[in-house]
Design a protein around this nucleic acid. Sequence first.
DNA 1: CGTTATATGGAGAACGTTCTACAACTCGTC
DNA 2: GACGAGTTGTAGAACGTTCTCCATATAACG
Lengths: 352, 352
Amino acid sequence: MSIEEKQKLQRNDRVTIRTVATHAGVSVAAVSKVMRNAYGVSDALRARVTDAIEALAYRPSRAARGLRGRSFTIGVLLIDIRNPFLPEVIAGVNGVLAPSHYQAMIGVSDARVQLETSLIESMIDYKMDGLILVAPRLPSEILAKFAVQIPIVAVGYHDASATAFDTVNADDQRGAEIAVEALLACGYRDIEMLSLGERQGHAVSVVRQREIGFRRAMQRGGLGSSPAIGKIPIASPKREEAMRKFLSRKDRPRAVFCWSDLDAITLLSLAMEMGVRVPEDLAVIGYDNSSTAALGLVNLASIDQSGRELGQVATRALISRIEGRTASEHILQIPSLVSRNSLTRSGNSTDR
Amino acid sequence: MSIEEKQKLQRNDRVTIRTVATHAGVSVAAVSKVMRNAYGVSDALRARVTDAIEALAYRPSRAARGLRGRSFTIGVLLIDIRNPFLPEVIAGVNGVLAPSHYQAMIGVSDARVQLETSLIESMIDYKMDGLILVAPRLPSEILAKFAVQIPIVAVGYHDASATAFDTVNADDQRGAEIAVEALLACGYRDIEMLSLGERQGHAVSVVRQREIGFRRAMQRGGLGSSPAIGKIPIASPKREEAMRKFLSRKDRPRAVFCWSDLDAITLLSLAMEMGVRVPEDLAVIGYDNSSTAALGLVNLASIDQSGRELGQVATRALISRIEGRTASEHILQIPSLVSRNSLTRSGNSTDR
DNA sequence: CGTTATATGGAGAACGTTCTACAACTCGTC
DNA sequence: GACGAGTTGTAGAACGTTCTCCATATAACG
């Protein structure tokens, strides 16, 4: 009997919980208990087991764990990997996770609803312990349906009425207001927003929120009831084309607020090529305060929403949800202005 | 009694292969066979099963799959997520994977060997089908040990003698040579390289390869037997400090080759701030041809290694290895120069 | 009409964990 | 000394697949 078992164990090269149990002279259940530090293990037993684990360099199979219980993995879904804002979020997530026994696995949906769905499903099927969705495209009802199966925290997704999942956001309405207020303070009155084209869909998206904030601040400033919002397509070469068109317009505004640094920086670059001086002819303010914006060469004023902080907060929220919280939380961080030369010539960086 | 209970429990929770089998009136094994399209299923059976799968919206559990057989997931390990070169690789991987039934899960090691090891182990423990490691830090022997357990393709890791795993690279030595040749062709003789500080370790790293290529091209050009290679620390603020120091050096060279656009762009920016004219006072050439380099505002000449293509090639190599290939492959792509104004004032982009 | 080959479908043992019962043992306490 | 109460360890049933036999039905052939 035991000979057969030993032969089996020898043939199979993987060290399993059973190998550890045999080596330590205890039961499989005991080893499991020690690993999950569950109730009811004496110090002596714990020592024997940890010694055996050490000696055999045992690692529990995540696949098997997932089949039965927790997998100690959390999934992160990114809409896109090019926007430099997103790596910041990841850094925040990893920072919080590092000292814990959790690990992050990342999926990239490339803004495609189909892929987004199948990645979320995969993560559920892997029995991951929770999900952080960054700027998901799926409607709230569908997220709610997923949230029944797995704890979910959405970042960059404005739905404070969601009860099934948490949200963590920078206040994008407020951010846009701050941008407009800064432009007004510099004396500009003729202001336009360059927003994201394509049907970025739902009002929950950060872009639509920024549009709302922009409109409100403009109205509050007494600048018309429906201020101009231009749409820039997301993909080259239509994107550059639209920007050139904007820059060469006769009635081009005096100042522009771009939904993202990504667009603002390209705009800055095209402006230079076309001989439009910034900020003398056109003031520009972006969003995200990316590292590129901070370059002296670029010097783009921008709204700072700390992606790293959002990632940290989201991760902490997710863990608390995994550990039992059921009431939903909706966290809003306040963004801030980083003034630079694209706003006004004296606009020294107020970077921390 | 017990049957009813079992049914209830099943209805409570998820749709499993058993639910499908019951619904289609066939055995569990039959469903499994259909899903893996294994030998020995009639058209009639296949139809019944696929109908049931459709009707129940059944998805196999990846956790359970991994426990027994394949998981249809491949793991991608990134050293860092900030370098804009890496998202390109991911895009290539996802592009190839999209039409297949495989999916990618990404882990980020933040250049820490400890984390890198534990992520690789996790991916193995998830029974992923294969791994793509992008610029791993672990020594070759250790990768070889992992490669026994799981198919591995390393990208940005120069070890053409590895037999246990494949490598896919741009020819970094050649890339550096091309950079030097371009600088020589512009008439510059006083050339220095700015490389990456810290112990980026092994000769397998792309950075060291570029140093080798730089040295060789310089010697070939008759410019001394040990040309100058400066080291720039990776982390702020020491990084900027080192660059400023370089820029204000009395014996500053006439031209500089940076190991990465990341550094070259910051250098460009600091040069502007410090009144060093590019290219009149200092010619700069970078590496990666990132999208920022292409901006008119930046206009940085750079060596193009298509990250996307590397990702595609690596993925195809991995799949062929998963499907049975055992002989190792070592693929080398040839990079190319993209000339821009930082190299010489007339240096128009030769972008495709 | 047997006999043998060949398709097709099914039973049931893994896979490596977790976790619920429950057994065994040690103390107090009445 | 009998009986709870508390503590420590174990047996064994899940979890949802894959995959190796095995059984059966059908076809082919002498």
